[in-house]
Nucleic acid binder design. Structure first.
Lengths: 213, 213
DNA sequence: GCGAATATCGAACAAACGTATGATATCAAC
DNA sequence: GTTGATATCATACGTTTGTTCGATATTCGC
């Protein structure tokens, strides 16, 4: 995806925000007013650029007819939902989660405390089964560098990210698995985020046989 | 909420569908064309009725400016999300879940198999902790009257709904809790639905003290 | 220094659109 | 049998809105 100029991003974000808050696509004049611009042609040109770069689509001969194509900017209906990126791996980069690793976006209820600062991590392994987190579950993680003892966190051990419970012994933090078969980890780690939610999907076999009513 | 005439419901559903699919509010003429009506005034009058009954709101002097107020008809952004009702209790009514018991609507990803035929049930008790379902979790339930042995289901025992695993012994179905402290239930029951997903929220205390980096 | 991309302006046109008017027909309730 | 809600029509007005045109200024790489 081609990069956006700051002004183009402002336009795209305003369009997305308006759709999310009001459910209505803004007109070029509304965008112009919001950005402190006096000519509709200015916004028109920005929208042209955004369309050429593939961020949105224009449905011709119709008013308020813009469709945002980039899922990263796709608005959520009302204030109820946020689209959170599902990452397969968490990178050690300083700015947080690398965008290239994003597999898809999933909408989740925002007012459960799950907002733009969160991402979804697919949990691998059974080290947390006693905490009710199974292999394949999707953890909703708030991105933060610190946490409190007792929190379930995403910790970065070298290159690898794991979900564990944060504990403290004699002032020294360590990671505890919620599974008797796993030993506590006293290695050096850094905190990527805190687990604030969980999404689980039960397999949907659709066999008609052996049904019980 | 005042009842809708069939035609009024058609208008409301078309508006909702268009917003969900295209992200754009339809014009009165578009609605008219879709319903096979030749005058914009006809649709205009239906929208007036819908607004008077409180199902939607009109933002004056703006085009394509309708806002759907009734959450039952509120569209979901794109095909990604469905708003599922959260029910506190499951009633024994024949038609399914009674609407008066709906507490709120939560958006969930549709392409995980969670669609309009599902609802969300707040799980009470710890009878399923070994299956990773804790007290306070929200089970996503597909409404269906039958299930397969091994499925986790919502069963109706008299007036009360419980989440248990469906088992069969010598051709006779019974309910099994996933917790050693609970005994199997051999009473008569009916199946309300199958648990196809889980939503959990971890408490979000925001104490600055005792933080570990 | 010179295109190319970015960013802006004011003015103007045609199409799309919300809204109003006035009229007709059906159906249920009182 | 009249009243009210529902459902429809055709036409028309005024405004909102997308879009185009011509023009200017800035920044950046070459």
């Amino acid at each position: 995806m081609q990069p956006l100029s700051p002004r183009q991003r402002e336009v795209l974000e305003y369009v997305s925000k308006t759709i999310g808050e009001q459910g209505i696509v803004p007109t070029v004049r509304e965008v112009a007013r919001a950005l402190g611009v006096r000519s509709p042609a200015t916004v028109q040109q920005h929208i042209d650029s955004l369309a050429k770069k593939g961020y949105l689509r224009r449905l011709p001969d119709r008013m308020r007819a813009l469709e945002i194509l980039d899922p990263a900017y796709a608005p959520t209906m009302s204030d109820d939902a946020v689209a959170l990126p599902v990452v397969g791996k968490v990178s050690a980069g300083p700015g947080g989660v690398a965008e290239e690793l994003i597999e898809e976006f999933l909408p989740v209820p925002r007012h459960l405390g799950w907002n733009e600062g969160c991402f979804i991590l697919r949990v691998r392994g059974s080290s947390m089964i006693d905490a009710g987190i199974f292999d394949g579950d999707m953890a909703i993680v708030r991105h933060q560098g610190t946490a409190q003892p007792g929190d379930i966190i995403v910790a970065l051990l070298g290159e690898e990210a794991t979900v564990k419970r944060l504990c403290v012994e004699d002032g020294a933090p360590y990671l505890k698995a919620e599974n008797a078969a796993f030993a506590p980890i006293h290695d050096v780690f850094s905190i990527t985020g805190k687990v604030v939610g969980l999404l689980r999907r039960y397999e949907t076999r659709d066999l008609a046989q052996g049904r019980v009513s």
